[in-house]
């Protein structure tokens, strides 16, 4: 754990302290501290299976911490009533890895969905807002398409427009770059950074795409085996002496994280001897 003072900022919009969470007999988080201040883009990185998506679900209140605290704007998410949690979620936008668009609605109706659910705006005004949000992600022309007709990158941009529909204060991005072609990746990176700055948002980007995440983040946290192993600005992370962080940032196949999944000795396996 780094001694970066950034991880202990008191004015955090999202403030996670001593988080403990286990699932399926596996301890995903064991004393994790993360603070995200207003207005910044924070990347949370780590290999697949380290619980990055779970962390977003804990922030959004879909899961409850088993130890420690997850506070959003001073409110302990795990202790909120259903009504208070839903009120808090209206201030949050979430971009799911799959996009999570409603497959039976057009792009327009997908973006209009939260507005129709939560506001009494007349349809003409909803149309204006939806077109503005779609324009912001460059897909105003695709408004009549269904999700099945969109490419993966376009679906994620529509999902971003939907996450922005209610003008949230913060946006949580779950693996926004996974499986994207270079052009879509560039578009998404530009959008995440520019929307954050232009709309005064706070963004949490969960990703294992190191270069992309570091190039837009103000600060980054690296997760491994239930702990934050490094935190700081992208420059501080690149200068890290931790072997683990160096393996992760430089994409080395072997190192502290072994290439091989734990197994019996190869010779035993070939002879058909099994260790019970």
């Amino acid at each position: 754990m780094t001694d970066s003072t950034a991880s202990l900022r008191p004015d955090g919009l999202i403030d996670i302290r001593g988080l403990v969470f286990s699932r399926g007999g596996r301890r995903l988080f064991d004393g994790v501290d993360v603070t995200v201040s207003r207005g910044e883009v924070v990347a949370i990185m780590g290999p697949s299976g380290t619980g990055k998506t779970t962390l977003l679900r804990l922030i959004g209140g879909q899961l409850r911490a088993q130890g420690g605290q997850v506070n959003v704007d001073g409110e302990a998410v795990g202790r909120l009533s259903r009504r208070a949690l839903y009120r808090l979620r209206r201030r949050m936008g979430v971009l799911f890895q799959s996009g999570a668009l409603f497959t039976d609605l057009t792009c327009f109706d997908n973006v209009a969905f939260p507005l129709r659910e939560h506001t009494d705006l007349p349809e003409a005004l909803i149309r204006h807002v939806v077109l503005m949000k779609l324009e912001a992600v460059g897909l105003r022309g695709a408004r009549d398409l269904y999700p099945a007709e969109l490419s993966g990158g376009m679906a994620r941009r529509v999902s971003l427009a939907r996450a922005l529909a209610l003008d949230p204060e913060m946006i949580l991005y779950d693996e926004p770059f996974a499986g994207q072609d270079p052009i879509s990746m560039g578009a998404l990176m530009k959008l995440i950074r520019e929307l954050n700055d232009a709309l005064g948002l706070t963004s949490v980007v969960v990703s294992h795409d190191v270069e992309e995440a570091l190039s837009i983040a103000d600060r980054a946290f690296v997760l491994s085996e239930g702990q934050i192993v490094e935190a700081g600005t992208p420059a501080e992370l690149r200068a890290s002496h931790s072997e683990w962080v160096r393996q992760f940032l430089n994409a080395l196949p072997d190192g502290p994280v072994p290439f091989h999944y734990p197994a019996d000795p190869m010779a035993d396996d070939l002879r058909g001897e099994r260790r019970e």
Binding site: R90, M92, V94, A100, T103
Partner: peptide
């Protein structure tokens, strides 16, 4: 399976009611 229900929850819309 396609996370539409989870997405709805995060948009502060309760899928059990909606």
């Amino acid at each position: 399976a396609t996370e539409q229900l989870a997405g709805m929850e995060m948009m502060a819309v309760d899928p059990e009611r909606r």
